Simulated scan of single mutants.
Amino acid sequence: MNNNVHGIDHVGLTVPNLEEATNFLIKALNATVLYDTYKKSEPIRDSDFIRKRLGIRHDMAERAIRMIGLPNGAQIELFEFSGPCQKQPITPADFGWQHVAFYVDDIEEAVTQVENAGGKRNSDPIDLGGIESGIGNKFCYCLTPWGSTIELISYPTPQPYLKESKRRKWPV
């Protein structure tokens, strides 16, 4: 078996407003703008080729694309579309990719940072259990200002799965 797959490069996220989403991610997750693939100042992309390539409806068009970098790890590619038929973000109970988890050192501080940036926690941080348990190991689901679900997770104590698994979540 070859080593062709290396890991997640980026996660695509459609947002209602590119600038507001960028500001939230900078404030909430210490992200930085890497580059704009496609700027709002450029003509709207509404060709059949774009629609087919992305698998979007015939009445939707691409407005802008921006790559956001996180301090350590994958990037987030923000998309803004225009058209009459956009749906609300899915919840964890819906089919499809339903959340992205961000590893943090201090979960309480991270939740406060998300809230100060305009996000909202679903509950207070909760202890991780079972195969992920350990002192200080916690997670917290939050909502972005536009309603997408993110998870903040921290596990400062080695998790029990490490005794049974040949692979770690993060390289040492």
Score class of each variant (00 low, 15 high):
Ala21Gly: 05
Gly118Asp: 07
Leu162Met: 10
Asn30Gln: 13
Arg45Lys: 15
Ala110Trp: 03
Glu151Thr: 02
Lys169Ile: 14
Asn116His: 10
Phe81Arg: 06
Ile126Glu: 08
Phe79Asp: 14
Leu128Gly: 04
Glu20Trp: 03
Glu115Met: 05
Pro125Ile: 01
Cys140Phe: 04
Ile131Asp: 14
Phe102Gly: 02
Lys138Gly: 02
Glu115Leu: 06
Val104Lys: 02
Arg167Asp: 12
Gly136Thr: 03
Pro156Tyr: 12
Ile8Phe: 09
Val11Ser: 09
Gly147Ala: 08
Pro158Thr: 10
Val11Lys: 01
Phe24Cys: 04
Gly129Phe: 00
Gly129Leu: 06
Thr32Trp: 02
Glu115His: 01
Pro156Gln: 13
Pro92Phe: 08
Arg167Glu: 14
Asp106Asn: 14
Leu143Gly: 04
Ile126Ser: 00
Pro43Gln: 15
Glu62Gly: 12
Thr22Phe: 00
Val111Asp: 03
Gly96Ala: 07
Pro89Phe: 13
Pro156Thr: 10
Asp59Val: 04
Glu132Gly: 07
Ser47His: 08
Arg167His: 11
Arg121Lys: 12
Ile153Cys: 09
Cys85Ser: 15
Ile153Met: 11
Asn116Ile: 04
Asn72Trp: 04
Lys163Ala: 15
Pro160Arg: 05
Tyr161Val: 00
Ile44Leu: 15
His10Val: 09
Phe139His: 05
Thr112Lys: 13
His58Cys: 11
Asn137Val: 00
Leu25Ser: 05
Ile153Leu: 13
Val104Asp: 00
Tyr38Lys: 10
Glu115Arg: 00
Ala28Ile: 03
Ile68Ala: 09
Pro84His: 10
Arg53Gln: 15
Lys52Gly: 06
Asp59Ser: 07
Asn23Arg: 08
Gln86Cys: 11
Lys87Ile: 12
Arg51Ala: 06
Val114Thr: 06
Asn17Thr: 04
Asn137Gly: 01
Tyr155Pro: 00
Cys142Pro: 00
Ala74Phe: 07
Phe81His: 14
Glu151Pro: 00
Ile68Gln: 05
Phe81Ser: 10
Val33Asn: 03
Gly96Lys: 01
Gln159Ser: 10
Ser133Glu: 08
Arg53Lys: 13
Glu108Ile: 01
Cys142Leu: 09
Val11Ala: 15
Cys85Asp: 13
Pro89Trp: 08
Val172Ser: 13
Pro89Glu: 14
Val11Gln: 07
Gly96Gln: 03
Val104Ser: 02
Thr14Gly: 09
Lys138Val: 00
Cys85Glu: 14
Asp105Glu: 11
Pro171Ala: 15
Ala74Gln: 05
Arg121Asn: 04
Ile153Asp: 05
Lys52Asp: 15
Val172Tyr: 09
Arg45Phe: 12
Phe79Glu: 14
Ala101Gln: 02
Ile153Asn: 03
Lys87Asp: 15
Asp59Phe: 06
Thr149Pro: 01
Gly55Cys: 11
Lys169Phe: 12
Gly69Trp: 01
Asn3Gly: 12
Glu19Ser: 08
Ile150Gln: 05
Ser41Gln: 12
Lys138Ala: 03
Thr112Ser: 13
Gln98Trp: 05
Glu151Asp: 07
Asp48His: 06
Ile153Val: 09
Thr157Asp: 15
Phe49Ala: 15
Pro160Thr: 03
Arg66Lys: 12
Ala31Ile: 03
Tyr35Ile: 07
Ile126Val: 08
His6Asp: 11
Tyr35Pro: 01
Leu18Ile: 13
Lys120Ser: 09
Pro84Phe: 11
Arg53Phe: 13
Ala21His: 04
Leu34Ser: 12
Ser165Glu: 06
Glu62Tyr: 06
Lys39His: 14
Arg53Val: 14
Ile135Thr: 10
Gln98Leu: 08
Arg63His: 09
Thr32Leu: 07
